[in-house]
Design a protein around this nucleic acid. Sequence first.
DNA 1: ATTAGTATTAGCACTTGGTACTAATACCAA
DNA 2: TTGGTATTAGTACCAAGTGCTAATACTAAT
Lengths: 189, 189
Amino acid sequence: MKRSKKERQSLLTEKITDNPFVTDEQLAAEFNVSVQTIRLDRMELAIPELRERIKDVAAKNYDEVKSLPLDEVIGEIIDIELDNRALSIFDVSSEHVFQRNGIARGHHLFAQANSLAVAVINDELALTAKSNVAFVKPVRAGDRVVTKAIVTGKLPEKNRTFIEVTSTVDNEVVFKGDFEMYRTKGEEK
Amino acid sequence: MKRSKKERQSLLTEKITDNPFVTDEQLAAEFNVSVQTIRLDRMELAIPELRERIKDVAAKNYDEVKSLPLDEVIGEIIDIELDNRALSIFDVSSEHVFQRNGIARGHHLFAQANSLAVAVINDELALTAKSNVAFVKPVRAGDRVVTKAIVTGKLPEKNRTFIEVTSTVDNEVVFKGDFEMYRTKGEEK
DNA sequence: ATTAGTATTAGCACTTGGTACTAATACCAA
DNA sequence: TTGGTATTAGTACCAAGTGCTAATACTAAT
Protein backbone atom coordinates (compact mmCIF):
# COMPACT_ATOMS: atom_id res chain seq x y z
CA MET A 1 0.00 0.00 0.00
CA LYS A 2 2.48 2.57 -1.16
CA ARG A 3 1.34 6.09 -1.33
CA SER A 4 3.20 8.73 -3.21
CA LYS A 5 5.30 11.16 -1.28
CA LYS A 6 2.90 13.97 -1.92
CA GLU A 7 -0.07 12.01 -0.80
CA ARG A 8 1.71 10.87 2.31
CA GLN A 9 2.76 14.38 3.18
CA SER A 10 -0.68 15.79 2.87
CA LEU A 11 -2.08 13.00 4.99
CA LEU A 12 0.69 13.61 7.45
CA THR A 13 -0.16 17.27 7.77
CA GLU A 14 -3.74 16.36 8.34
CA LYS A 15 -2.93 13.72 10.94
CA ILE A 16 -0.73 16.05 12.88
CA THR A 17 -3.17 18.93 12.80
CA ASP A 18 -5.80 16.52 13.90
CA ASN A 19 -3.72 15.17 16.73
CA PRO A 20 -0.56 17.10 17.54
CA PHE A 21 0.32 14.58 20.23
CA VAL A 22 1.49 11.88 17.88
CA THR A 23 5.17 10.84 17.73
CA ASP A 24 7.25 10.27 14.62
CA GLU A 25 7.43 6.62 15.50
CA GLN A 26 3.68 6.24 15.56
CA LEU A 27 3.41 8.07 12.30
CA ALA A 28 6.09 5.90 10.72
CA ALA A 29 4.21 2.79 11.75
CA GLU A 30 0.99 4.23 10.45
CA PHE A 31 2.39 5.10 7.04
CA ASN A 32 4.63 2.08 6.83
CA VAL A 33 7.76 4.08 6.28
CA SER A 34 10.83 4.65 8.37
CA VAL A 35 11.04 7.20 11.12
CA GLN A 36 13.60 9.07 9.07
CA THR A 37 11.18 9.53 6.24
CA ILE A 38 8.70 11.04 8.62
CA ARG A 39 11.36 13.39 9.90
CA LEU A 40 12.28 14.44 6.38
CA ASP A 41 8.63 15.00 5.65
CA ARG A 42 8.20 17.16 8.72
CA MET A 43 11.23 19.16 7.76
CA GLU A 44 9.98 19.76 4.26
CA LEU A 45 6.61 20.73 5.61
CA ALA A 46 8.14 22.79 8.41
CA ILE A 47 6.20 20.92 11.05
CA PRO A 48 7.90 21.18 14.43
CA GLU A 49 8.67 18.23 16.65
CA LEU A 50 6.22 16.75 19.10
CA ARG A 51 7.35 18.71 22.12
CA GLU A 52 7.23 21.99 20.30
CA ARG A 53 3.79 21.21 19.01
CA ILE A 54 2.56 20.39 22.46
CA LYS A 55 4.18 23.48 23.85
CA ASP A 56 2.43 25.56 21.22
CA VAL A 57 -0.94 24.14 22.11
CA ALA A 58 -0.23 24.74 25.78
CA ALA A 59 1.07 28.24 25.23
CA LYS A 60 -1.96 29.20 23.24
CA ASN A 61 -4.12 28.27 26.15
CA TYR A 62 -1.85 29.92 28.61
CA ASP A 63 -1.00 33.10 26.80
CA GLU A 64 -4.32 34.60 27.42
CA VAL A 65 -7.68 33.19 27.98
CA LYS A 66 -8.20 34.15 24.44
CA SER A 67 -11.90 34.66 23.90
CA LEU A 68 -12.15 37.76 21.84
CA PRO A 69 -11.87 41.24 20.75
CA LEU A 70 -9.82 43.71 22.64
CA ASP A 71 -9.56 46.18 19.84
CA GLU A 72 -11.17 49.52 19.88
CA VAL A 73 -12.90 48.74 16.68
CA ILE A 74 -13.68 45.34 15.31
CA GLY A 75 -12.77 45.40 11.67
CA GLU A 76 -10.87 48.11 9.91
CA ILE A 77 -12.56 51.35 9.13
CA ILE A 78 -11.76 52.29 5.57
CA ASP A 79 -14.01 55.26 5.11
CA ILE A 80 -15.84 57.51 7.48
CA GLU A 81 -17.91 60.63 7.21
CA LEU A 82 -18.73 61.60 10.75
CA ASP A 83 -22.37 61.78 11.74
CA ASN A 84 -23.30 60.44 8.38
CA ARG A 85 -21.80 57.18 7.18
CA ALA A 86 -18.92 54.78 7.71
CA LEU A 87 -17.51 51.68 6.11
CA SER A 88 -15.38 48.94 7.59
CA ILE A 89 -14.04 45.58 6.52
CA PHE A 90 -13.46 42.56 8.66
CA ASP A 91 -11.69 39.43 7.53
CA VAL A 92 -13.22 36.37 9.12
CA SER A 93 -10.66 33.79 10.12
CA SER A 94 -10.76 30.46 11.85
CA GLU A 95 -10.84 31.88 15.34
CA HIS A 96 -14.13 33.59 14.63
CA VAL A 97 -16.06 30.54 13.56
CA PHE A 98 -17.59 27.48 15.12
CA GLN A 99 -15.20 24.60 14.59
CA ARG A 100 -18.16 22.39 13.94
CA ASN A 101 -19.21 23.93 10.70
CA GLY A 102 -17.02 26.94 9.99
CA ILE A 103 -19.81 29.46 10.38
CA ALA A 104 -18.94 32.73 12.06
CA ARG A 105 -20.27 33.27 15.53
CA GLY A 106 -22.89 35.95 15.58
CA HIS A 107 -21.30 38.18 18.12
CA HIS A 108 -18.36 38.95 15.86
CA LEU A 109 -20.63 40.34 13.20
CA PHE A 110 -22.49 42.21 15.87
CA ALA A 111 -19.21 43.52 17.22
CA GLN A 112 -18.18 44.87 13.85
CA ALA A 113 -21.53 46.53 13.32
CA ASN A 114 -21.69 47.89 16.84
CA SER A 115 -18.23 49.36 16.84
CA LEU A 116 -18.84 50.95 13.48
CA ALA A 117 -22.02 52.49 14.82
CA VAL A 118 -20.03 53.87 17.74
CA ALA A 119 -17.34 55.21 15.45
CA VAL A 120 -19.61 57.03 13.06
CA ILE A 121 -21.00 59.19 15.78
CA ASN A 122 -19.21 62.44 16.00
CA ASP A 123 -19.13 62.76 19.72
CA GLU A 124 -16.99 62.22 22.68
CA LEU A 125 -18.80 59.13 23.46
CA ALA A 126 -21.56 57.03 22.12
CA LEU A 127 -23.27 54.14 23.82
CA THR A 128 -25.54 51.61 22.30
CA ALA A 129 -29.02 51.88 23.74
CA LYS A 130 -30.92 49.35 21.68
CA SER A 131 -30.41 47.29 18.65
CA ASN A 132 -32.32 45.02 16.40
CA VAL A 133 -30.32 42.73 14.21
CA ALA A 134 -30.79 39.92 11.76
CA PHE A 135 -28.21 37.38 10.71
CA VAL A 136 -29.34 36.92 7.16
CA LYS A 137 -26.86 34.46 5.79
CA PRO A 138 -24.04 32.40 7.32
CA VAL A 139 -20.57 33.89 7.09
CA ARG A 140 -17.56 31.63 6.87
CA ALA A 141 -13.86 31.69 7.56
CA GLY A 142 -12.08 33.46 4.73
CA ASP A 143 -14.99 35.76 3.99
CA ARG A 144 -14.36 39.47 3.90
CA VAL A 145 -17.25 41.24 5.52
CA VAL A 146 -17.89 44.78 4.31
CA THR A 147 -20.06 46.72 6.69
CA LYS A 148 -21.73 50.01 6.05
CA ALA A 149 -23.29 52.18 8.69
CA ILE A 150 -25.65 55.03 7.78
CA VAL A 151 -27.08 57.57 10.14
CA THR A 152 -30.80 57.56 9.46
CA GLY A 153 -32.16 59.89 12.04
CA LYS A 154 -31.68 61.86 15.23
CA LEU A 155 -33.60 62.92 18.24
CA PRO A 156 -31.33 65.64 19.63
CA GLU A 157 -33.58 66.43 22.53
CA LYS A 158 -33.28 62.84 23.69
CA ASN A 159 -29.63 62.45 22.76
CA ARG A 160 -30.46 59.68 20.35
CA THR A 161 -29.02 58.80 16.97
CA PHE A 162 -30.39 56.06 14.75
CA ILE A 163 -28.08 54.07 12.56
CA GLU A 164 -28.71 51.43 9.99
CA VAL A 165 -25.97 48.90 9.47
CA THR A 166 -25.65 46.45 6.60
CA SER A 167 -22.92 43.85 6.19
CA THR A 168 -22.19 42.11 2.93
CA VAL A 169 -19.90 39.41 1.63
CA ASP A 170 -19.36 39.51 -2.11
CA ASN A 171 -22.20 41.99 -2.40
CA GLU A 172 -24.64 39.66 -0.70
CA VAL A 173 -26.22 40.88 2.49
CA VAL A 174 -25.28 38.70 5.45
CA PHE A 175 -26.28 40.91 8.33
CA LYS A 176 -28.57 43.84 8.94
CA GLY A 177 -29.10 45.85 12.06
CA ASP A 178 -30.71 48.97 13.41
CA PHE A 179 -28.93 50.67 16.24
CA GLU A 180 -30.25 53.28 18.58
CA MET A 181 -27.31 55.10 20.05
CA TYR A 182 -27.08 57.36 23.04
CA ARG A 183 -24.66 60.24 22.86
CA THR A 184 -23.40 61.98 25.93
CA LYS A 185 -23.14 65.44 24.58
CA GLY A 186 -25.70 67.04 22.43
CA GLU A 187 -24.96 67.61 18.84
CA GLU A 188 -22.32 70.08 17.95
CA LYS A 189 -22.79 72.12 14.88
CA MET B 1 18.45 33.94 52.44
CA LYS B 2 18.06 30.31 53.32
CA ARG B 3 14.50 29.26 53.47
CA SER B 4 13.28 26.24 55.29
CA LYS B 5 12.34 23.19 53.30
CA LYS B 6 8.68 23.74 53.94
CA GLU B 7 8.78 27.33 52.90
CA ARG B 8 10.69 26.48 49.78
CA GLN B 9 8.28 23.76 48.84
CA SER B 10 5.26 25.94 49.21
CA LEU B 11 6.90 28.64 47.15
CA LEU B 12 7.84 26.01 44.63
CA THR B 13 4.28 24.82 44.27
CA GLU B 14 3.18 28.36 43.79
CA LYS B 15 5.86 29.11 41.22
CA ILE B 16 5.04 26.07 39.19
CA THR B 17 1.32 26.61 39.27
CA ASP B 18 2.00 30.14 38.25
CA ASN B 19 4.23 29.15 35.39
CA PRO B 20 4.26 25.47 34.50
CA PHE B 21 6.87 26.10 31.80
CA VAL B 22 9.78 26.48 34.19
CA THR B 23 12.58 23.89 34.30
CA ASP B 24 14.16 22.35 37.37
CA GLU B 25 17.36 24.14 36.53
CA GLN B 26 15.70 27.53 36.52
CA LEU B 27 14.00 26.72 39.78
CA ALA B 28 17.26 25.56 41.33
CA ALA B 29 18.90 28.84 40.37
CA GLU B 30 15.98 30.77 41.72
CA PHE B 31 15.96 29.06 45.10
CA ASN B 32 19.70 28.75 45.31
CA VAL B 33 19.65 25.02 45.79
CA SER B 34 20.79 22.16 43.63
CA VAL B 35 18.76 20.69 40.86
CA GLN B 36 18.51 17.47 42.83
CA THR B 37 16.85 19.23 45.70
CA ILE B 38 14.25 20.58 43.35
CA ARG B 39 13.69 17.11 42.01
CA LEU B 40 13.25 15.70 45.49
CA ASP B 41 10.85 18.48 46.28
CA ARG B 42 8.80 17.78 43.20
CA MET B 43 8.69 14.13 44.08
CA GLU B 44 7.52 14.81 47.58
CA LEU B 45 4.92 17.18 46.28
CA ALA B 46 3.99 14.87 43.44
CA ILE B 47 4.57 17.56 40.86
CA PRO B 48 5.27 16.06 37.46
CA GLU B 49 8.18 17.03 35.27
CA LEU B 50 8.14 19.93 32.88
CA ARG B 51 7.09 17.97 29.82
CA GLU B 52 4.23 16.31 31.61
CA ARG B 53 3.07 19.62 32.94
CA ILE B 54 3.11 21.15 29.52
CA LYS B 55 1.34 18.17 28.08
CA ASP B 56 -1.34 18.51 30.75
CA VAL B 57 -1.93 22.13 29.92
CA ALA B 58 -2.04 21.29 26.23
CA ALA B 59 -4.34 18.33 26.69
CA LYS B 60 -6.70 20.37 28.76
CA ASN B 61 -6.78 23.06 26.14
CA TYR B 62 -7.19 20.53 23.41
CA ASP B 63 -10.01 18.63 25.03
CA GLU B 64 -11.90 21.79 25.67
CA VAL B 65 -11.47 23.02 22.17
CA LYS B 66 -12.59 19.69 20.88
CA SER B 67 -15.50 19.11 23.16
CA LEU B 68 -16.61 22.64 22.72
CA PRO B 69 -19.42 24.51 23.06
CA LEU B 70 -18.41 25.65 26.48
CA ASP B 71 -15.21 27.05 25.10
CA GLU B 72 -17.03 29.16 22.61
CA VAL B 73 -18.94 30.86 25.33
CA ILE B 74 -18.05 34.31 26.45
CA GLY B 75 -18.32 34.26 30.17
CA GLU B 76 -18.45 31.18 32.30
CA ILE B 77 -21.50 29.00 32.33
CA ILE B 78 -22.33 28.11 35.87
CA ASP B 79 -25.61 26.37 35.38
CA ILE B 80 -27.33 24.91 32.39
CA GLU B 81 -30.50 22.96 31.76
CA LEU B 82 -30.50 22.20 28.08
CA ASP B 83 -33.40 23.48 26.04
CA ASN B 84 -34.67 25.31 29.03
CA ARG B 85 -32.41 27.73 30.83
CA ALA B 86 -28.81 28.67 31.38
CA LEU B 87 -26.81 31.01 33.55
CA SER B 88 -23.40 32.50 33.01
CA ILE B 89 -21.20 35.04 34.67
CA PHE B 90 -18.77 37.39 33.02
CA ASP B 91 -16.31 39.56 34.85
CA VAL B 92 -15.84 42.84 33.07
CA SER B 93 -12.27 44.03 33.09
CA SER B 94 -10.41 46.96 31.68
CA GLU B 95 -9.99 45.49 28.22
CA HIS B 96 -13.74 45.39 27.75
CA VAL B 97 -14.44 49.03 28.36
CA PHE B 98 -13.98 52.37 26.67
CA GLN B 99 -10.93 54.03 28.13
CA ARG B 100 -12.74 57.30 28.03
CA ASN B 101 -15.29 56.52 30.62
CA GLY B 102 -14.88 52.93 31.74
CA ILE B 103 -18.18 51.78 30.32
CA ALA B 104 -18.29 48.32 28.78
CA ARG B 105 -18.57 48.10 25.04
CA GLY B 106 -21.92 46.82 23.98
CA HIS B 107 -20.68 43.94 21.94
CA HIS B 108 -19.20 42.21 24.93
CA LEU B 109 -22.55 42.07 26.63
CA PHE B 110 -24.06 40.97 23.39
CA ALA B 111 -21.42 38.28 23.04
CA GLN B 112 -22.14 36.89 26.47
CA ALA B 113 -25.86 36.84 25.80
CA ASN B 114 -25.49 35.44 22.33
CA SER B 115 -23.17 32.64 23.27
CA LEU B 116 -25.35 31.70 26.19
CA ALA B 117 -28.30 31.52 23.81
CA VAL B 118 -26.27 29.23 21.58
CA ALA B 119 -25.23 27.05 24.48
CA VAL B 120 -28.66 26.53 25.93
CA ILE B 121 -29.92 24.98 22.75
CA ASN B 122 -29.67 21.26 22.89
CA ASP B 123 -28.62 20.62 19.34
CA GLU B 124 -25.66 19.98 17.13
CA LEU B 125 -25.61 23.53 16.16
CA ALA B 126 -27.45 26.71 16.74
CA LEU B 127 -27.18 29.93 14.80
CA THR B 128 -28.55 33.29 15.70
CA ALA B 129 -31.18 34.39 13.22
CA LYS B 130 -32.39 37.63 14.75
CA SER B 131 -32.07 39.49 17.95
CA ASN B 132 -33.46 42.48 19.61
CA VAL B 133 -31.47 43.89 22.47
CA ALA B 134 -31.49 46.80 24.82
CA PHE B 135 -28.56 48.11 26.81
CA VAL B 136 -30.42 49.26 29.84
CA LYS B 137 -27.71 50.53 32.10
CA PRO B 138 -23.99 51.09 31.68
CA VAL B 139 -21.72 48.32 32.90
CA ARG B 140 -18.27 49.13 34.20
CA ALA B 141 -14.93 47.45 34.69
CA GLY B 142 -15.04 45.30 37.80
CA ASP B 143 -18.71 44.52 37.43
CA ARG B 144 -19.76 40.90 37.47
CA VAL B 145 -22.46 40.39 34.90
CA VAL B 146 -24.84 37.55 35.60
CA THR B 147 -26.75 36.52 32.53
CA LYS B 148 -29.77 34.29 32.40
CA ALA B 149 -31.18 32.77 29.25
CA ILE B 150 -34.64 31.26 29.19
CA VAL B 151 -36.18 29.37 26.32
CA THR B 152 -39.55 30.98 25.79
CA GLY B 153 -40.86 29.22 22.76
CA LYS B 154 -40.27 27.05 19.76
CA LEU B 155 -41.40 26.71 16.20
CA PRO B 156 -40.17 23.23 15.41
CA GLU B 157 -41.50 23.24 11.86
CA LYS B 158 -39.37 26.29 11.13
CA ASN B 159 -36.42 25.16 13.24
CA ARG B 160 -36.74 28.17 15.43
CA THR B 161 -36.20 28.60 19.14
CA PHE B 162 -36.92 31.80 21.01
CA ILE B 163 -34.81 32.80 23.93
CA GLU B 164 -35.06 35.64 26.37
CA VAL B 165 -31.84 36.83 27.90
CA THR B 166 -31.43 39.11 30.88
CA SER B 167 -28.16 40.35 32.31
CA THR B 168 -27.82 41.86 35.73
CA VAL B 169 -25.16 43.44 37.86
CA ASP B 170 -25.91 43.40 41.57
CA ASN B 171 -29.46 42.38 40.78
CA GLU B 172 -30.00 45.37 38.58
CA VAL B 173 -30.89 44.70 34.98
CA VAL B 174 -28.26 46.06 32.63
CA PHE B 175 -29.12 44.26 29.43
CA LYS B 176 -32.13 42.55 27.93
CA GLY B 177 -32.42 40.71 24.68
CA ASP B 178 -34.67 38.47 22.67
CA PHE B 179 -32.96 35.97 20.43
CA GLU B 180 -34.44 34.02 17.62
CA MET B 181 -32.23 31.02 17.02
CA TYR B 182 -32.03 28.69 14.10
CA ARG B 183 -31.17 25.12 14.92
CA THR B 184 -29.89 22.61 12.46
CA LYS B 185 -31.22 19.17 12.94
CA GLY B 186 -28.37 17.06 11.69
CA GLU B 187 -27.08 18.14 8.34
CA GLU B 188 -26.46 21.37 6.68
CA LYS B 189 -24.43 21.82 3.58
C1' DA C 1 30.52 15.44 72.08
C1' DT C 2 28.20 11.58 70.09
C1' DT C 3 24.67 9.89 67.59
C1' DA C 4 20.58 9.66 65.01
C1' DG C 5 17.83 11.48 61.55
C1' DT C 6 16.69 14.56 58.09
C1' DA C 7 18.26 17.52 54.25
C1' DT C 8 21.12 18.44 50.59
C1' DT C 9 24.30 17.59 47.04
C1' DA C 10 26.83 14.74 43.61
C1' DG C 11 27.38 11.42 40.11
C1' DC C 12 26.21 7.97 36.89
C1' DA C 13 23.38 5.16 33.87
C1' DC C 14 19.35 5.30 31.29
C1' DT C 15 14.96 7.31 28.83
C1' DT C 16 12.19 9.99 25.15
C1' DG C 17 11.78 12.16 21.28
C1' DG C 18 13.89 14.31 19.03
C1' DT C 19 18.14 17.33 15.68
C1' DA C 20 22.00 17.23 12.43
C1' DC C 21 24.54 14.96 9.57
C1' DT C 22 26.60 11.30 6.50
C1' DA C 23 26.31 7.37 3.74
C1' DA C 24 24.19 3.74 1.49
C1' DT C 25 20.64 1.89 -1.18
C1' DA C 26 16.17 1.87 -4.00
C1' DC C 27 13.32 3.37 -7.60
C1' DC C 28 11.92 5.63 -11.76
C1' DA C 29 12.58 7.86 -16.05
C1' DA C 30 15.02 9.41 -20.18
C1' DT D 1 23.38 3.51 -18.39
C1' DT D 2 23.13 7.60 -16.06
C1' DG D 3 20.99 10.81 -13.14
C1' DG D 4 17.85 12.51 -9.78
C1' DT D 5 14.80 11.88 -6.25
C1' DA D 6 13.19 9.04 -2.36
C1' DT D 7 14.00 6.24 1.32
C1' DT D 8 16.47 3.97 4.87
C1' DA D 9 20.25 3.36 8.19
C1' DG D 10 23.37 4.76 11.45
C1' DT D 11 25.99 7.81 14.37
C1' DA D 12 26.73 11.64 17.58
C1' DC D 13 24.43 14.81 20.26
C1' DC D 14 20.70 17.47 23.08
C1' DA D 15 17.16 18.69 26.78
C1' DA D 16 14.99 17.55 30.60
C1' DG D 17 14.24 14.59 32.84
C1' DT D 18 13.93 9.46 36.13
C1' DG D 19 16.08 6.18 39.31
C1' DC D 20 19.45 4.95 42.05
C1' DT D 21 23.54 5.09 45.23
C1' DA D 22 26.61 7.43 48.05
C1' DA D 23 28.64 11.12 50.28
C1' DT D 24 28.26 15.13 53.05
C1' DA D 25 25.85 18.81 55.90
C1' DC D 26 22.83 20.33 59.42
C1' DT D 27 20.24 19.94 63.42
C1' DA D 28 18.31 18.41 67.63
C1' DA D 29 18.34 15.29 71.55
C1' DT D 30 20.63 12.57 74.76
